[in-house]
Design a protein around this nucleic acid. Structure first.
Length: 503
RNA sequence: GGGCCGUUAGCUCAACUGGUAGAGCAACUGACUCUUAAUCAGUAGGUUUGGGGUUCGAGCCCCCGACGGCCCA
């Protein structure tokens, strides 16, 4: 062989996928289709290992098992091979011996690569080192992998690749798989918790003519046939309340909200919210319900109500602390008693902190700016912060004793807002004037102020029963219970800037 | 939006003060019928994130951009 042909051979072999494409050609030449269908596994790795864990070496088990999965490790020993196979439930080991599968088939087995998905039929047996394994009698290549998997020991750790190619992350990182499973269990639990209590699960519009129910910037889109703008919802609140008007006393929705804001470890533009509403209840009732719901959730999901988040312990055992916004501001030394009700004093402090505040901001708004800046992160909790200023709570009912605040609470755990709830404002006259305040704020330049929703007011004018409602951030709950520090760990496909070099 | 850090083989990482870009795993060839990060012998694999600049010489220094991470707003 000349030097030049040697060189050509090597450049072709330089592509790892090219090597595998060649193997496909060779398999096709032997009449083997590398993407065959019809193989139906009958037992998972977990079931297999549980059922046959007691067999002993040299024992012949009169059972044939049919299993499938992805090859994640190959140890070839001349005329035999061990392979580690990963299926949905875990890993198991197979043993391929030339005598058992035949010389021709063994040659084919030697062409298998890490990453390929195969089906096997064989007998359970125990290796000399005591691992329950499958003694393969037949195998089928179900899917040929053209690309190599990440390194077997260190795996895939680059966070950018883990998020962009989540499928790869899920193949190799068990913790990533566990988070997906835990998230699903959490949502199931919450759904059951509410349906068991007579709540009805509903779906309300994701595309709204007027984005309402929260203080946030919406995404705007366009409907061609209607020739008008629509917004992706920032919250389902105003629609769920319409259902209370319609006579459904207990409703909930688990779905995505969209907010056109920055991306961080705490924020994804689309995130999942549980919102539920119950007639004839107050925000006090919801505090008790929330304690019960989340403490039992933790008990169910991780088996305890006391656990570590990062390097600090969280204890969700009820009852939880309750503190008004005003008390929290004073306790955490944002203001003292004499200055907290003085607009000028509060404004000056906010400016000194470098906060983005304006002369048109109400006292309540200034309070909350300072609260977000200095108090929030200190609320390890769990703690209910309640009695929010009326001007930052345009959909919440006024408190009977103090009309400057509302019957509203937010739940804080680990310095993060987990839930927001209130006794709902069902007085259509008060609601109209609150909306009008919001319109004025919007006209003064507040992009996050609410729009006036005339149909929602019309609904209230028909009469909405007294009720309380709550929104619970699912992603943050999942972060808490999986000890994840970034929201991107609990969202399967988090938003990222487009990758270069890919169409 | 601002600051700092990062991007080197498919993956995980090295590379001194600017002086021939390396390793392990994966891959390829060969040996091996009980391995467990198998072992042994050998081989190949690089537009060092992109562009520009300084220099005899740049992965390393300077400028601009892309993407990511952390912190701040």
């Amino acid at each position: 062989m000349s030097d030049s042909s040697q060189h050509t051979k090597h450049s072709q072999a330089s592509s790892l996928t090219e090597v595998r494409r060649k193997k496909i050609e060779e398999l096709l030449d032997q009449g083997i289709f590398p993407y065959s269908t019809g193989f139906k596994p009958e037992i998972t790795s977990q079931e297999f290992l549980r059922e046959f864990r007691h067999i002993v070496e040299n024992e012949t088990v009169d059972r044939v098992v049919k299993m499938s999965g992805r090859i994640i490790a190959i140890r070839l020993l001349g005329k035999a091979a061990f392979m580690r196979i990963r299926d949905v439930a875990g890993d198991f080991q197979i043993y391929l011996g030339r005598d058992a599968v035949g010389a021709e088939n063994f040659k084919i087995a030697k062409k298998l690569d890490i990453g390929d998905i195969i089906g096997v039929v064989g007998k359970p047996f125990k290796t000399r080192t005591g691992e329950t394994s499958v003694l393969v009698e037949q195998f089928t290549l179900l899917t040929k992998a053209l690309r190599p998997l990440p390194e077997k020991w260190h795996g895939l750790s680059d966070v950018e690749t883990r998020y962009r190619q989540r499928y790869l992350d899920l193949i190799v990182n068990q913790t990533s798989r566990d988070i997906v499973i835990t998230r699903s269990k959490i949502i199931s639990f919450l759904r059951n918790f509410l349906t068991e209590r007579g709540f009805l699960e509903v779906e309300t519009p994701m595309m709204q003519a007027l984005p309402g129910g929260a203080t946030a910037k919406p995404f705007e889109t366009y409907h061609n046939a209607l020739d008008r703008s629509l917004y992706l919802r920032i919250a389902p609140e105003l629609y769920l309340k319409r259902l209370l008007v319609g006579g459904f006393d207990k409703v909930f929705e688990i779905n995505r909200n969209f907010r056109n804001e920055g991306i961080s470890t705490q924020h994804n533009p689309e995130f999942t919210m549980l919102e539920f509403y119950e007639a004839y209840k107050t925000y006090d009732d919801l505090m008790s319900l929330t304690e019960q719901m989340l403490s039992s959730l933790a008990q169910e999901i991780i088996g305890t109500q006391r656990f570590m988040y990062g390097d600090k312990e969280v204890d969700l055992t009820p009852p939880w602390t309750r503190m008004t916004v005003r008390e929290a501001l004073i306790t955490h030394r944002a203001f003292n008693e004499s200055e907290i009700d003085d607009w000028n004093a509060v404004f000056i402090k906010a400016v000194e902190m470098g906060l983005k505040v304006g002369k048109e901001d109400s006292l309540g708004k200034l309070w909350m700016s300072v609260f977000d800046e200095v108090v929030e992160e200190k609320l390890w909790g769990p703690v209910f912060i309640h009695k929010y200023p009326v001007d930052v709570s345009p959909l919440a009912r006024r408190n009977d004793e103090d009309p400057t605040v509302t019957d509203r609470f937010e739940l804080y755990i680990c310095g993060r807002e987990m839930a927001n709830a209130f006794t709902e404002l069902n007085d259509p006259i008060d609601q109209r004037s609150r909306f009008e305040q919001q319109v004025m704020a919007r006209n003064a330049g507040d992009e996050e102020a609410h729009y006036l929703d005339e149909d929602f007011l019309r609904a209230l004018e028909y009469g909405m029963p007294p009720a309380a409602g709550e929104g619970l951030g699912i992603d943050r709950i999942v972060m808490l219970l999986t000890n994840s520090q970034s929201i991107r760990e609990v969202i399967l496909f988090p938003h990222m800037r487009p990758e270069k070099g890919l169409g």
